[in-house]
Simulated scan of single mutants.
Amino acid sequence: MRPHVDQRQARVLALVRERGTARVADLAGELGISPVTLRRDVEAMAARGEIQRMHGVISRLGSDPAGAEPGAAAGTGAGTERGAAGPVIGMVVPTTEYYFADVVRGAREVVEARGARLAVGLTRYLAGEDRTQADRLLSTGADGLLLTPTWQAGTPGPGEGAWTAELPVPTVLVERWAPPGHPAASLDRVASDHADGAARAVRHLADLGHKRIALASRETPTSGRLRTGFAAAVATLGLEPAPAWPATGAASSAAAGTAAGAASLAEAEAFARTLDYLCAAVAEGGVTAALIHSDTDAIMLIPRLQARGVRVPEDLAVITYDDEVAELADVPLSAVAPAKREVGARAAGMLLDRLEDRAAGREGPRQHLDLLPRLTVRP
């Protein structure tokens, strides 16, 4: 039978008072409880002023955490049992490829420059894997988390994501946001303002004289914000609305036997639907320009559009969204580029600042930071 929480915390307090300092991971093993459970206890005890906590090390009140050397500044990690490595920052992302490669790179540069270490967990967009990876990183000693949950719309769905606000360490959402009233809305977050990015593209195309502009994007965590910004810009600029995006048809049963086959079929159907939509929008809907998300879709679509009689850019001017490979197209494409590297860097800096504030007994206001994308115009 597990000891009552009060008894467990009393045991932790007795050990810390006896030894002066102790590492959370070591105490968890000694007491036979999970690091996540012990971290929750430590947070509660620190909030009550019973112990001091800093970067995975706890100490009795009035002592230098983890035997800090005289003159070492609190919160720097100097002289701790981790040595020069400082705190460990856990980062949960869907992938380290394509879009998130730069996000992770930006975070790593800031983390390492400030004497900390970055540990990454990948979810591959698998359901439930966010929580699994977060718990794994916490169990191995992460002092804070940079978290990109697998929320299909970029925001939590009904009944989704409340656990992110209950984590026992400071957490920053990266390229995700939660609406007011959701528990995760209380977390720090750093994200690209994709709505602004879409609006920048529309504004540029309107300045070139285009009156009817289309948006072509499959369903991604980015697409909802793109649609919001796109629609707002069309309305603000008084442009003519493009034909409505086609409703998603029923999935074919040809590949129902395997999840991988179904996903592949769904992607092929989405691509074909986008191609049909753009061809009809130009031929029948008077559309002369389009914002296409993403670059890879645009590069694949353009030769197929031309094969069906839609010339690019003569009949359809194209701006892509993401700017990962837009300049590598046969004719380099203008593109909107979210500040991916800076998002990772700002998120890491925000989290490290939060850890230092906590170590110093401060608790500043939570922050929601949106970074504006950049439009690169290519001839």
Rank of each mutant, 00 (worst) to 15 (best):
D6P: 00
R11T: 14
A14M: 08
A14I: 02
V16F: 01
L27D: 04
S34C: 01
P35S: 03
A46D: 10
V57M: 09
A72L: 02
A78T: 07
T80P: 02
A84G: 11
A84Y: 02
I89D: 00
V92P: 08
P94G: 13
T95I: 02
F100A: 06
R105N: 13
V111R: 03
A113C: 02
G115I: 04
G121I: 02
R124A: 15
L126T: 14
G128R: 03
L138A: 07
G144N: 03
G144S: 05
G154W: 13
T155Q: 13
A162M: 05
T171E: 12
V172M: 03
G181V: 08
H182Q: 04
P183L: 04
S186T: 15
S186H: 10
L187S: 07
S192C: 09
S192G: 13
H194M: 05
G197N: 01
A199H: 01
R200A: 14
A206H: 15
D207E: 15
L208Y: 07
E219V: 12
E219N: 12
G224L: 14
R225W: 09
F230S: 07
A231L: 15
L237R: 05
L239K: 06
P241M: 09
S253F: 10
A262V: 08
A262F: 01
L265T: 13
A268H: 13
E269N: 03
A270I: 00
R273H: 09
T274H: 14
L275A: 09
L278C: 06
E284Q: 14
L291A: 11
D297Y: 00
G309N: 09
P313S: 02
A326D: 09
A329W: 07
L351Q: 08
L355P: 09
H368C: 08
V377T: 12
V377R: 13
